[in-house]
Design a binder for these strands. Structure first.
Lengths: 212, 212
DNA sequence: ACATGTGAACTGCTTCACAGCG
DNA sequence: CGCTGTGAAGCAGTTCACATGT
């Protein structure tokens, strides 16, 4: 299969959330034009994105909302439940544990880990914080497919190495630094200070096209 | 001035945080090669990124760490303090209010707003939650340059319209949906479910190059 | 000799435009 | 006729390679 651009995958997520929204409202068909308008892109882009995976529409008619939703869920790997652990039970980790949006999408937070003895046993949405020494064992036993990392930056690469060593293949990091993983482990980093810097950059050069 | 790619701005942030780290350790000079190794890019990319803004290095020698840090801070608009308000005092909003990383970078959370009467007056790191009806007035009076949006998706576009109407020019949204702003208002969206979907996409097609 | 700065070549994503099919 | 699906063209971002300056 061809290499799919990250930008394409992001747009597929956007299309899916739009489809689920209008699907819940009872809309049965839609078009690449509709999907484009919402996603802030063009109809050609929508069709090109979908074309990497198959032909899901009917010429002259458009797309069936339930059908296309199902295809996108399958493509994005949402046709199953995923078990996720949160490593780091601080402010952000706790907020994410309680965030309902994950469960709606099939992501179950089934474990939390921290090294601070004061946090052990604390409950977040029915999940108790465990000692981080058990993390490696639990990953090796196949309990989790995805790890969310919300530890201080000093410890982050160290924990990543443990996660990778134990066999995890997907990590979402909130640590504000650049981490490294082997090529077979997917890492995404959300760096909030960096996002704000993108905004101040735009604010500072008060020229045209801030939008991006 | 030429249009700068978003990817370039993101890398500048990465370079800066690396420079500050090694600067704090007393390192005085560095090279495009060093910066590249850390940022997961190439030395040519580093030099090209910097070249959009000037010539900050010495041929044959490299870059002065304090000088390049200062230039990057200036370029990214970090040469001043920014006042930021958080709209939505739920789980994520509260966690962000307490997140120390913002202040370190010159972003001061100086206001919080919510519409839920139960949340009014609650304190987060010394900032009281105010009624959202005051938000428009406070933005118009110039209290904030940046707004962080952590409200439920149903209300998000509505709040964006209020923010934009009151004159805000930069918004960081955590709402899991696509929002629209006029071209002179910069909007960045962090969508955690979408990040996880990027991971499951990679996990599902267990082929090569997961990394991106 | 060494590392920067930069035009030129290249790669890959996006847009165009139209053939194909309902 | 309308909207999809897709090769071809266009464009933007990255990489190359070397001239330039110390």
């Amino acid at each position: 299969m061809k290499r799919i651009a990250e930008s394409t995958v992001r747009r597929l997520s956007i299309y899916l959330s739009f489809l689920e929204e209008i699907g819940a409202r009872g809309v049965l068909t839609t078009s690449s034009d509709d999907l484009a308008r919402l996603g802030g892109t063009t109809s050609a882009q929508v069709r090109k994105d979908l074309s990497f995976f198959g032909s899901f529409g009917k010429r002259g008619l458009g797309y069936s909302v339930p059908e296309l939703s199902a295809h996108l869920r399958e493509i994005l790997g949402l046709g199953r439940k995923w078990n996720v652990c949160i490593v780091g039970a601080g402010k952000i980790g706790g907020a994410l544990a309680r965030y309902a949006g994950f469960a709606e999408r099939g992501f179950n937070i089934t474990g939390m880990y921290d090294s601070d003895p004061h946090k052990l046993g604390k409950m977040y949405s029915g999940v108790a914080v465990q000692d981080i020494v058990h993390l490696e064992r639990d990953i090796k036993s196949g309990k989790y497919q995805i790890a969310i990392l919300t530890v201080p930056p000093e410890n982050a690469q160290n924990i990543v190495d443990i996660l990778v060593g134990a066999g995890i293949k997907a990590i979402l990091s909130f640590a504000p630094l650049q981490l490294t993983t082997p090529p077979d482990v997917t890492l995404r980093t959300v760096n909030m200070a960096m996002e704000l810097e993108g905004l101040t950059f735009a604010l500072t050069k008060r020229s045209s096209d801030q939008q991006y």
